[in-house]
C-alpha cells in the first residue's frame, strides 16, 4: 500500500515545528513514531498534504523525576517506558502498561506523546494515565499549558489540543506510600489493542481504608474515561470483596459502551466489570505489599 503524496518537513526545534503547524493548519499532521499515523495513511484514511516529523528535535526523549512527578518526554518510546528502571521502581504500572502495547517492533517506534495525541479510543496508555491522574504539557503558538488527563480525551481520536499545539511531556504525580495500581487488559489477539482495558489505582490510609481510588477505562466507549461512580463507591470504604464487586458494577454507569466486530456493548460492559475487579484486587495487594 502506498500513501498519498505529501511534503515532508523535519524541523530541528519545537518552535519551528509549531510555526509550521500554524502556517500549514489543517493540511498538516504531526509525525512522531508513526505507528498509528503511517498505517492510516497507507489505507488513505488520512491524506495529509504535509507531514511534520518531530524526529529531528532533540530533548523530547527522557524519563526523569522532578518536583513530585515523573516527567516523560513526548518522544519517549513505549520500549523505553517498558524498560525504565525509574518507572519500574516508582510507577511500575506504567512500565507494565507500556509492555502490553502492540508488539516489540511497535514499542520500539511508537511514542507516549504520539499515542496520547492520537487518542485512539482503544489505546492502552489513556486508561493508566487517567488512573494515575497524569497531566500533559502542551506547547503551542500561545505558549505552554498543562491539561489533566481527565480533560484530554473528549472524543474518539480527539485530543484536547488547539490548532498548532504539540504534546511535549507527560507528567505523572508520584503516588503516596501505601498505594498500588494495576492495568488489566483483554486484548484483541490480532492488533493487541484493548477490547477493554481497566487501570485501577488505590491509595490506603494508615487504618487500611481506601483514602482514594481512581479507575481509568479504555476500549469500552468511544473515548477513554474515568469511572467516577465506581470511584465514589470506593472512597473511604474498607477494601473488601463486597465493596470491589459493587464498585465494579458501577464502572459503566452512565457510559454508552461501543459495539463492533470484536464484541457487543453488553460484552464490553461485562469485561469492564470483570477487569475492574481484577485490577482493584491486584492494586490492593500492591498497595499493601508496598
Amino acid at each position: 500500500m502506498v500513501c498519498a503524496p505529501f511534503t515532508y518537513h523535519r524541523p530541528s526545534s519545537l518552535r519551528q515545528a509549531i510555526a509550521l503547524l500554524q502556517r500549514l493548519g489543517e493540511e498538516a499532521k504531526v509525525l512522531a513514531g508513526g505507528q498509528s499515523l503511517i498505517p492510516v495513511m497507507k489505507m488513505r484514511l488520512a491524506q495529509p498534504q504535509h507531514l511534520i516529523d518531530l524526529g529531528g528535535i532533540q530533548g523530547l526523549s527522557y524519563i526523569r523525576e522532578a518536583r513530585g512527578a515523573v516527567r516523560i518526554g513526548a518522544l519517549t518510546t513505549h520500549a523505553e517506558v517498558e524498560a525504565s528502571d525509574l518507572l519500574k521502581r516508582r510507577l511500575p504500572v506504567l512500565a507494565e502498561t507500556a509492555s502490553l502495547i502492540g508488539d516489540m517492533q511497535v514499542r520500539n517506534r511508537g511514542t507516549i506523546g504520539g499515542s496520547v495525541a492520537h487518542a485512539d479510543p482503544a489505546a492502552d496508555y489513556p486508561a493508566t494515565l487517567l488512573a494515575l491522574d497524569a497531566r500533559f504539557k502542551v506547547v503551542g503558538p500561545e505558549g505552554t499549558r498543562t491539561v489533566p488527563a481527565s480533560q484530554f480525551f473528549p472524543g474518539p481520536f480527539t485530543a484536547a489540543l488547539k490548532p498548532g499545539e504539540v504534546v511535549t511531556e507527560v507528567q505523572v504525580p508520584l503516588p503516596p506510600q501505601g498505594s498500588g495500581a494495576s492495568y488489566q487488559k483483554f486484548a484483541n489477539k490480532a492488533s493487541r489493542f484493548a477490547v477493554v482495558g481497566v487501570c485501577a489505582f488505590i491509595s490506603l490510609n494508615a487504618r487500611g481504608t481506601i483514602r482514594s481510588a481512581r479507575l481509568g477505562v479504555t476500549g469500552a466507549a468511544d473515548h477513554p474515561f474515568r469511572a467516577t461512580a465506581a470511584e465514589e463507591a470506593l472512597q473511604g470504604a474498607r477494601p473488601e470483596e463486597r465493596v470491589f464487586q459493587r464498585a465494579s458494577r458501577l464502572v459503566t454507569q452512565g457510559v454508552e459502551c461501543v459495539a463492533d466486530v470484536h464484541g457487543s456493548a453488553e460484552y464490553r460492559a461485562w469485561l469492564c466489570q470483570v477487569l475492574a475487579r481484577r485490577a482493584l484486587e491486584t492494586a490492593l495487594a500492591r498497595a499493601r505489599g508496598g
Partner: peptide, 18 residues
C-alpha cells in the same frame, strides 16, 4: 522486520526519510 539503529522495527511502518 529489520534493525534500525539497533532496534527491531517494521519497515512497512517507517518512511525511508525517517
Amino acid at each position: 522486520t529489520v534493525l534500525l539503529n539497533g532496534k527491531a522495527v517494521k519497515s512497512c511502518t517507517v518512511f525511508a526519510v525517517q
